[in-house]
Design a binder for these strands. Structure first.
Length: 886
RNA sequence: GGGCGAUUAGCUCAGUUGGUUAGAGCGUUUGCUUUACACGCAAAAUGUCGGGGGUUCGAGUCCCUCAUCGCCCACCA
């Protein structure tokens, strides 16, 4: 292959499109039980089946892919289990919307069976887009194992778990206070409620005593719920009201007498000390109601409009309309005392833009207390480690206060609860995998289970549980879970509980919590804000490798990422740099084919620069492995970037141009070293940038057509760092010296291309020998005409002025004679010095004049001050240059 | 109310167990068609490490405190 087949700039598009299908065809991603290898497995956090790829997924899946590819290269048998989640409420809403729009039909028209059939149809046709998109990112998922949370096998797992927990007494059906979403018309778990601080009003009402002896004052933020009031509570110790306990008030607008009860819940120090009690719509009131045996009056329809338990003119009104009308009627009745503006936290439905309702309803619950115990122990003992570790605190806080989990949902898309009611026998309940074979009219529960009730089984259900599969035996428990901290309760904690309960074994050893991606202004990425870039467009523009590398490169550890597309230039430019380093090597000749291990002769004859480069690279190999062990992906990319760009390209390639130019054995050796180093770099980089590394490894002739870098051994230490510490320090010193020399040139406005002479005064005998041995290299790197090296100071008396710079290896001098007219330069500087001194003196006087400072516009004063500072600096530089000139 | 995190260059962020002169990328300035790369090369400028106090020979790093911002949880008749 000749060099002109490598374009000047790296073009990722076709190369990425070429490799991925090849990898997949060759089943490189597939893992199966293999006794000769150690297993390494990861389960993907299943994206919603309705989902499309977002930057969050990009980050998350890039990290998983890095781990998988790294371990594959380390010789593990790797399987990354992919799949999607049926996402009950979200998908049902999505398909419902689709059907309304396209066919003007929906749930209510189609009926349960047909609707579910249509959801499946939609899923087959439009679902799983994200799974295809993950391929463009380079994700090395074991696609043969792709699962869906509603697959038959996973449904079996869900049923088995439900029945088992029911039989253990953990799952029960009961009438409890729950969160109700009026849009989904379903119950939600506590975790699905999002609290937002919103402006609201606090209404103070009079509730007249039934005996006409006066009234009590109650306050509420929810006037419309008063139709569900079944008591007013006062504190039994409250001297103002204790004599009223047992009497009644007339509930306004309904004229229904309700009792005054004495209860601790009423706090005498708050408001009037009287509390209206609405057991059906407030968690505290529900408890009060239980204590006093109060009626529970649900006043709402499923869509949160008021029902027929309310006065006629309110029936059917939306809750917010009803609120206004209630207040109006109370005011008309002279029962409104005042309205205060307040800010309070209101619970919103996770999906909808609407406030949830708390109301009492019959639902299925799972008692989590016992399940939580081993799960807490698993993290406390360190069997499961969290990265960053601080999330354990959040985990324990939630687990220690864990509440019963409301698992039933009043929707159709999901796992239907395996419970049957005997309509002939007072709704006797049977729970089991199928309809009971017992007499009676048995009807299955209409409700389905919370989506997370299948997700929490994912790490083992995806491997075939409850069947005893080879995958389960070999790959469980998985190695690392990579996910966002926002689902620590929804998913992570529950998976740990499920693993401990049903597998008697933790589901993963590490949990790595990713950052949340925000836009440049720090806002969350969202569709409605339009600030959410489409990763496919980004990949199109910059390449998948560039996106992967950049997003890891900019991800601060454990904090939010501020992302913008321009940041992908980091990865794109880096890929281009690497491409051109390889292109340069190709221009020197064909691969040496000895790169896999340097032969002893080459090792014995390494130049100082080569020792330096191979030593630094060896050090990188070690540090990247350490970083990956600690999930410090960001540090790993920074170190690789620095080594490739600054050390390999800026210094080493430049230095190697010398031996390459010389030819003969020098050139041969240099090419071998370049090959050896490049192949090590490509392999270290492969987990991060899979496409370009595969392409280059082949372009460079490091691999045959039937080979892949995916299975090349990840570089281990070759001992060249430990062996060359001294050589590394010396070369670092040499490069410092070169840098100082270049700076001297720039200071005197000598163009890069201009060949000048330098003098080096070595710091000691050893350094003298080193500098002399490296004279050619130094001349080359400085682009110098001639460099004299000795232990002697530069003789400025004899040879004219020469500014110098002190370095570790010695002092570098730039003789100016012949380059610039010293006398003329000196005169120019003296003139400049005088002008500056005059200006500075005048300006200082001006600034010391209080009248100027106090009366001149602030901007003028500030400008004067900054100009002064600038000129003072300029003067300093001038003085320093004058000193150099002698 | 409880918890967690952040505050370092114009911007985005590194800074490992305290240890020479606090770093990078982007941006800015200057100069470069140097036998890979302008998606490039060389050089340069820029910091009260949020404020205050303390521990220490030594603090960006540890402790206390205050301030601001963000997130999570709980509560709110």
């Amino acid at each position: 292959m000749s060099n002109n087949e490598m374009p000047k700039a790296y073009e990722p598009g076709n190369i990425e499109k070429k490799w991925y299908p090849l990898w997949e065809e060759r089943k490189y991603f597939h893992g199966s039980a293999n006794k000769d290898k150690k297993p390494y497995s990861i389960v993907i956090p299943p994206p919603n089946v309705t989902g499309i790829l977002t930057l969050g997924h990009v980050l998350n899946n890039t990290l998983q892919d890095i781990l998988c590819r790294y371990h594959r290269m380390k010789g593990y048998e790797v399987s990354w289990f992919p799949g999607t989640d049926h996402a009950g409420i979200a998908t049902e809403a999505r398909v419902e919307k689709f059907l309304r729009k396209e066919e003007n039909t929906g749930r209510d028209i189609l009926g349960r069976d047909e609707f579910i059939r249509r959801v499946w149809e939609w899923k087959e046709k439009y679902g799983g887009t994200i799974i295809k998109q993950l391929r463009t990112l380079g994700s090395s998922c074991d696609w043969e194992k792709e699962r869906f949370t509603m697959d038959a096998g996973l449904s079996d797992a869900v049923q088995k778990v439900f029945v088992e927990l029911y039989n253990k007494g953990y799952i029960y059906r009961g009438q409890r206070m729950i969160n109700w979403c009026p849009v989904a018309k379903s119950a939600l778990s506590d975790e699905e409620v999002i609290y937002r601080d919103v402006p609201g009003k606090f209404y103070h009402f009079k509730y007249p005593l039934s005996d006409g002896s006066g009234f009590l004052v109650v306050a509420t933020t929810r006037p419309e719920t008063m139709f569900g009031d079944t008591a007013v509570a006062v504190n039994p110790e409250d001297e103002r009201y204790k004599h009223l306990i047992g009497k009644t008030v007339n509930l306004p607008l309904c004229n229904r007498p309700i009792p005054i009860v004495g209860d601790q819940h009423a706090d005498p120090t708050k408001g009037s000390g009287c509390v209206k009690i609405t057991p059906a719509h407030d968690p505290n009131d529900f408890e009060v109601g239980k204590r006093h045996n109060l009626a529970i009056i649900n006043i709402m329809n499923p869509d949160a409009s008021l029902n027929d338990k309310c006065p006629e003119e309110f029936v059917g009104l939306d809750r917010f309309t009803a609120r206004d009308l209630t207040v109006k009627r109370m005011e008309e009745a002279g029962l409104l005392i005042k309205i205060e503006d307040i800010t309070h936290a209101v619970g919103y439905s996770e999906r909808g833009e609407v406030p949830i309702e708390t109301l009492v309803s019959y639902q299925w619950f799972c008692n989590m207390k016992e399940l939580a115990k081993p799960a807490m122990e698993a993290v406390a003992s360190g069997k499961i480690k969290f990265y960053p570790e601080r999330w354990t605190k959040t985990y324990f806080h939630w687990m220690e206060n864990i509440q019963d989990w409301c698992i039933s949902r009043q929707i159709w898309w999901g796992h239907r609860i395996p419970a049957w009611y005997n309509r002939d026998n007072n709704d006797e309940i049977y729970v089991g995998p199928g309809k009971p074979d017992k007499p009676g009219r048995w009807e299955q529960e209409e409700d389905v289970l919370d989506t997370w009730f299948s997700s929490w089984l994912w790490p083992f259900s995806i491997m075939g549980w409850p069947e005893k599969t080879a995958d389960l035996e070999y790959f469980y428990p998985t190695a690392t879970l990579v996910t966002g901290p926002d689902i620590i309760f929804f998913w992570v904690a529950r998976m740990i509980m499920a693993g401990c309960e049903f597998m008697k074994e933790i589901p993963f050893k590490n949990v790595y919590f990713t950052s949340i991606i925000r836009d440049e202004q720090g806002r969350k990425l969202s569709k409605s804000l339009g600030n959410s870039p489409d990763p496919l467009d980004v990949i199109d523009q910059y390449g998948a490798d560039a996106l992967r590398f950049s997003i890891i490169y900019i991800a601060p550890v454990g904090m939010d990422i501020k992302y913008s597309n321009e940041k992908c230039e980091i990865g794109r430019n880096f890929a281009n740099k690497l491409w051109n380093a390889c292109r340069f090597r190709r221009m020197q000749g064909d691969a040496t084919l000895t790169f896999k291990a340097l032969d002893t002769e080459t090792l014995a004859n390494l130049s100082d620069d080569e020792k330096w480069m191979l030593g630094k690279l060896d050090n990188l190999v070690e540090s990247v492995q350490t970083y990956l062990k600690d999930f410090q992906f960001h540090s790993a990319t920074h170190d690789i970037y620095e080594l490739v760009w600054s050390e390999f390209c800026d210094w080493f390639i430049e230095a190697e141009k010398q031996p390459l130019r010389k030819g003969g054995t020098d050139k041969e050796r240099a090419m071998k070293v370049l090959d050896y180093a490049l192949y090590r770099i490509l392999r270290v980089l492969h987990p991060f940038m899979p496409f370009i590394t595969e392409e280059l490894a082949h372009q460079m002739g490091f691999l045959g057509d039937d080979e892949s870098i995916m299975f090349a051994e990840f570089p281990e230490t070759d001992g060249l760092f430990a062996a060359n510490r001294e050589a590394i320090a010396l070369a670092d010193g040499k490069f410092d010296l070169v840098r100082a020399g270049r700076a001297l040139k720039t200071n005197y406005n000598l163009a890069d291309g201009r060949k000048v002479n330098f003098h080096l005064k070595a710091a000691d005998d050893a350094k003298l020998a080193y500098l002399q041995a490296n004279a050619d290299s130094i001349i080359h790197l400085l682009n110098a005409a001639e460099v004299t090296i000795s232990l002697a100071d530069y003789d400025s008396a004899a040879n004219g002025a020469a500014p110098s710079q002190l370095c570790d290896l010695g002092t570098i001098y730039l003789p100016l004679a012949g380059l610039i007219d010293v006398a003329e330069e000196k005169a120019k500087l003296e003139k400049q010095k005088a002008e500056l001194e005059k200006w500075i003196a005048g300006t200082k006087a001006k600034l010391n004049n209080e009248k100027f400072v106090s009366k001149a516009p602030a901007q003028v004063v500030a400008d004067t001050r900054s100009a002064l500072a600038q000129n003072e600096e300029k003067l300093e530089r001038t003085l320093s240059l004058l000193k150099d000139l002698g």
